[in-house]
Each structure stands twice: as structure tokens, then as C-alpha cells.
Design a protein around this nucleic acid. Structure first.
Lengths: 242, 242
DNA sequence: AAGTGGTCTAGACCACTTT
DNA sequence: AAGTGGTCTAGACCACTTC
């Protein structure tokens, strides 16, 4: 019950680690129910309250989702609230909406020094490069270039991409078993280059928001780098400081 | 002990509310210790575990700060980690540093329709308008204009401002009893106007980050609106999506 | 009715800080 | 040694969902 921890940390954190392992290993997959608190208490030989505290933290970190009376579920990018967790662009007027995506191309290439560093690869390793434009209504608003590790996304192709309906991270989750957990963004103001200007239908040199994002999966593993250029004449990037 | 709630919410949330009240009323001021869990349990006639859960939430929301062996303290803008909670500008290379502030002016005026709406005032109500430039080393990097409700910040003057060393929100907290809790930001890319261009030493039309912030105190009360223009040639706005 | 998570209690012991 | 928060347990009952 109260055996001295191998790593010196409270029991509920060790349980949290064990549950996390089962998430990473895929024993319980996104959207599925995990065993009840009582079952887990028996399995790990601790009290229900200790399992509870472990699940409390995992649920606060959005790895799990509790539903009273039904059970505890593995988080998914399905849920409505997850949809907009990684899309922070809001219209100046009106409700937030999901943009239409126009795929420009999806090809294989080699990682530049910068991309290799950000994705923790070696320079020259294979990567998938996606370029697309996101539009709200008729307005092209975001142009972005996405870099993915070639090994993880072996079979990704323009076809898969175009056939899939739903968010990109949902596709990564269901088709490639890679779940995005969190992301870091660097935001700058930049002048539109000829390419971005044409795609976004703005004059060359027009100010655009440049958003660079590195997304991480379990264990702080970087699995995506994207650089996007946002028009901000009818939208803004929304952020909460808490 | 288990009396049916007047408002239907769990006991620990009611306790949380009572503690919150004492924070807002100033019974316990920023930086001070609050009574121990046992004392609060007696005071509210509940078990220590219930008080604990209330404090857990308040501590997660950064209203309180627990220190094992010492007690539970009211959060302050003092702590090092609080310093950078509202300043998201990071240098491209090197460590994050605190900028020097140059006050341009600090005068009284009337709220425009926009400012009145954001601060929940009536158009024409008195406001304090502060303009300043923040610099890293020799580089002017941020130009911002800050609007504060005149009634709350009655005696704020350029003198007070210049004499105070420390963060602006710390000044608001200690001198005006107004503690910032959270803020909402809208971020856009904009071309520098002549005024900003001169102050930030960039060409007119250069792309700048425009950051509009409304900051809230207890009870979702808006107490500050600021519009800042950031140079992002040597810095970037850092954000975590979680 | 049975099973799930949610709340509440009471008591024990641990770890850290101060006296 | 005494006081604080931190962990763990065991048991009771509530609220929601499903059968």
C-alpha cells in the first residue's frame, strides 16, 4: 500500500504515471472509456481516493474527460471545445467559424537545419511539407506551411488529406496515432512577400501576422512545425492571460 | 454540516465563495497569510478536507499560494513568476529581461465610445490616459497607450508613476487596491503610423504587432484597457496553447 | 436497481518550517 | 516540539446514467 517510492514522489503521481503509460501505449485509445475508479484502485492496489486524485490531474491537463454517471474517457480532438483549442483566429464581428481549407501541395522533402532543430531530427531527414490556404467565406485569410517528421507520417498524401473531413489534428490522431497535447507559438508582424501577397490577395508589403508553431505529443515530443501568415484586417488572434 | 445549499452548489464551492469574499473585501490582503485550514474548517463549520478542496481551486486559479509548513498566502504581483505573466515579449536570442519604461505623459480625459464600452463606463466618463515606451537595452520596442477608469485611479499622476519601481500591476495593487486577475488580448499586424514610427524608430508603414488588452479584476470587472504597438524584429510574442 | 463519478467526513501519518 | 500544508485511507451518501 504505502511502499517507499522508487522515485520519490507521492503515490497518486505514480498512479498518474501508470495511467499515462496506458494512454501512450494505446491500451485505452482516444474516445474510449477507461476502467472505473474502483477497478483501477484494485488494479493498482491503492484506495479509490488516490486513483481519484491521479485522474483529477490528468483531467485538468485535458488527457482525460470525466462524465458523471458514465465514466472517464480518453480525450479526443473530436469534442467541440477541442476544435478551437488550436485555432485562435476570431472574426471582428460575428461568431467564430471553421475555415475552409485549400490544399496547395503535399510533398516529401528534406529537413532544413531550422526544421530539423525544431522537430528534433537530423538535418536532411525526410519530412512531409504541406502548404495550404484557409478561407473564411470567400476571404483567403491564412497561408501556412506545415512540416511533419517523415517517419511518423509515412503514408500521408494529398488524397488522404483531401478526403478527410474534420480538423487536421483529428486526422493525425485517427490515422497516424499521434495525439497533439500542447503547442508553443511565436508571433510576429511581418510584411507580405510576393507569394503570400498573391495567395492572400493583399498588396505586397502589407502587414501580416506570422505565427510559428511547434506542436508536441506525449513526452514533449515535437511532431509538427508550422509557419502561418494571417491576414488581420477582418480577424484577430485571440489570447487569454490568466 | 450538510445543510441543503441555498444556491445549489457543493459545499466546497460555497466555502470557496466565502474565502473569495474575504479576498475581495480585503480582510486578507495580497502577500498576507490566511488562517490555517483547520481554523477555516472551524470557522465555516465544515471538515478540513472541504476547506482544502476550496483552497485547491483558488490556488489553481492563482488567487492563493500554498507553502508547505508555512501557510496559505494571498497571491501578489510580487513573485518573480507573476512578473512575466502579463508580458509575453521574448527576445529572439538571450534571456527574457524586464524593459525600461519611459513615461511620455499621464493625463486625465474623457472616455471615447470604444473605451467606455470596453471598460464598462459611460461615454464621457473620466479616464486616466497613460502613454509610454518600453525599451530593451537601447531599443525602443513597445509603444502603448493605457486607459484607466478615473474613479478607481483618482490620484494617479506622473510623479507616482515615475517614483514607483516595479511592475505597473504591482503599483495598482499596492497604491490603489486593485488586483489584476486575468486579461483578454486581441492581436493584429498593422502598419506603423507616423507617431509610432518615430517613437519606435522604424520606417513609417513598417509592420508592427498591435496588442489590445482588457484586464479584469475580481468579479470580471474591467479595470484597464491598453493598446500597444510592438516591434518584432528582435522579439516575438510568446504563447502556449494547452 | 446497479454502476458511475462527485461530495463530505474523520482520522492517521508524512514533510517542511519555525520556535 | 508544535504548527502548517501534503498524502492516504475508509466509509458514507448524493447525482447522474443506464438497464
Amino acid at each position: 500500500m504505502n511502499n517507499p517510492a522508487p522515485t520519490f514522489s507521492p503515490l497518486y503521481r505514480q498512479i498518474k504515471g501508470l495511467i499515462m503509460q496506458s494512454l501512450v501505449s494505446g491500451e485505452w485509445r482516444p474516445g474510449e472509456v477507461i476502467p472505473s475508479e474502483m477497478e483501477l484502485a484494485v488494479r493498482y492496489k491503492v484506495s479509490q481516493g488516490t486513483v481519484r486524485k491521479a485522474i483529477d490531474e490528468l483531467s485538468a491537463e485535458k488527457h482525460l474527460l470525466r462524465r458523471q454517471g458514465k465514466g472517464t474517457f480518453v480525450a479526443t480532438h473530436d469534442e467541440a471545445r477541442a476544435q478551437f483549442r488550436f485555432l485562435r483566429l476570431m472574426p471582428d464581428v460575428g461568431e467564430q467559424e471553421w475555415p475552409a481549407s485549400l490544399l496547395l501541395d503535399c510533398k516529401r522533402g528534406r529537413a532544413s537545419a531550422e526544421v530539423a532543430r525544431l522537430l528534433e531530427l537530423s538535418a536532411g531527414d525526410g519530412v512531409v511539407i504541406i502548404r495550404r490556404v484557409l478561407s473564411f467565406g470567400d476571404e483567403p485569410t491564412v497561408f501556412e506551411q506545415i512540416y511533419l517528421p517523415g517517419t511518423t507520417f509515412k503514408n500521408l498524401s494529398a488524397e488522404i488529406f483531401n478526403e478527410y473531413k474534420g480538423s487536421m489534428y483529428k486526422l493525425f490522431e485517427t490515422e497516424f496515432g499521434t495525439r497533439m497535447i500542447r503547442a508553443e507559438e511565436k508571433i510576429r508582424a511581418m510584411a507580405a512577400d510576393p507569394n503570400a501577397a498573391e495567395l492572400l490577395r493583399v498588396p505586397m508589403g502589407a502587414p501580416l501576422l506570422c505565427v510559428e508553431r511547434v506542436a508536441f505529443s506525449y513526452g514533449e515530443k515535437p511532431v509538427e512545425f508550422r509557419r502561418g501568415f494571417y491576414r488581420t484586417d477582418k480577424h484577430f488572434y485571440s489570447n487569454s492571460l490568466g
